[in-house]
Nucleic acid binder design. Sequence first.
DNA 1: CCGTAATTTCGGTAAATTCAGAAATCCATG
DNA 2: CATGGATTTCTGAATTTACCGAAATTACGG
Lengths: 184, 184
Amino acid sequence: MPLLDHPDAKAFLLHWGEMGTQWGVNRSVSQVHALLYLSDRPLPADEIVDQLGLARSNVSTALKELQSYAIVRRVHVEGDRRDHFVAELDLWEMLTRIAAERKRREIDPTIALLNELAQRLAKDATCPPHVRERITRMHEFLSTLGNWYEQMRVLPKPTLVALMKLGGKVVRFLPGGKKDANSG
Amino acid sequence: MPLLDHPDAKAFLLHWGEMGTQWGVNRSVSQVHALLYLSDRPLPADEIVDQLGLARSNVSTALKELQSYAIVRRVHVEGDRRDHFVAELDLWEMLTRIAAERKRREIDPTIALLNELAQRLAKDATCPPHVRERITRMHEFLSTLGNWYEQMRVLPKPTLVALMKLGGKVVRFLPGGKKDANSG
DNA sequence: CCGTAATTTCGGTAAATTCAGAAATCCATG
DNA sequence: CATGGATTTCTGAATTTACCGAAATTACGG
């Protein structure tokens, strides 16, 4: 019995698919992800094809993309030759993996370029001062962000979760942190 | 004298333009942003057209998009009828504004849908248990993230900056936080 | 190894996006 | 309230991206 017979599962899947384009992947990719996320068992590509009505090749590409984010993985199912696929169900894991891959694709190349430019600018007298300053600032800013990310990345997951649950209340624990009505 | 005469400024601008497509905007948008970011004075649309070699209409659309993120704003220049534009130069501001807009576009619609679905699922006996659970989990997860974001958003900027600079060392200050070699 | 099932790659088409130029609208000024 | 510059909106062409079906490749069981 197809998962998508249930109207709410279907609503979720269709919405997820549409949002995909906003998130920088195509609809097929995010639909496949939604289907696997809702599925209670590993699915072979064929079945994804059937349930979503996509071309086999398209599903293959989508699965590859999802695996590149490490939020979907191949699993072997006893007594079946075909590859099966499951989505990461730990949403915190999902988030950190997407973050890692997006940083790699969207931030790291720019930091690399800025490293180069910063080096060149250091010994370049012809550059207008404000250009030098703007590029340097951007370099410092992104480097700082990158370092922060790196430090967060290596924290144990429970610590990260605790930090997030704490929300704005972290400041209470900092030296000179604000006291509020709930702190005593 | 055009800004882009300098090779490093040009390299920055070209790179920024290419990355734009990764970041979910088109090349024109990110190029216009780069140009304004490097400029030491407000630029009228005409001049952006000249320096980047884009069509006037294109620049108009790009400026609108950048203003929707609130990282570029219109300014009036004494004695000139034309609108001029400047980029946000405080990079921390830039980041928080982009984050705000992206959350609005990329997360809020999904939270809204999940609110609906969660409500429907609560009184729906026909839904397979694992589907209910997965959707509920996603709902809780995104809501928690949203709440965390909201609490970070309202913190004073210096506090945010301090928190980031602190990096992984925040945990030292938390109750039960780990001690490390640098903490004593 | 051979045959078959499973999967990926390739080529072509459809759809969407980007972008320039033209037309229309807006707006300040005389 | 007319004029001319400034700006946006409209339209269509060009490019890019998404996606299907077929062919090629890979992996597996006998």
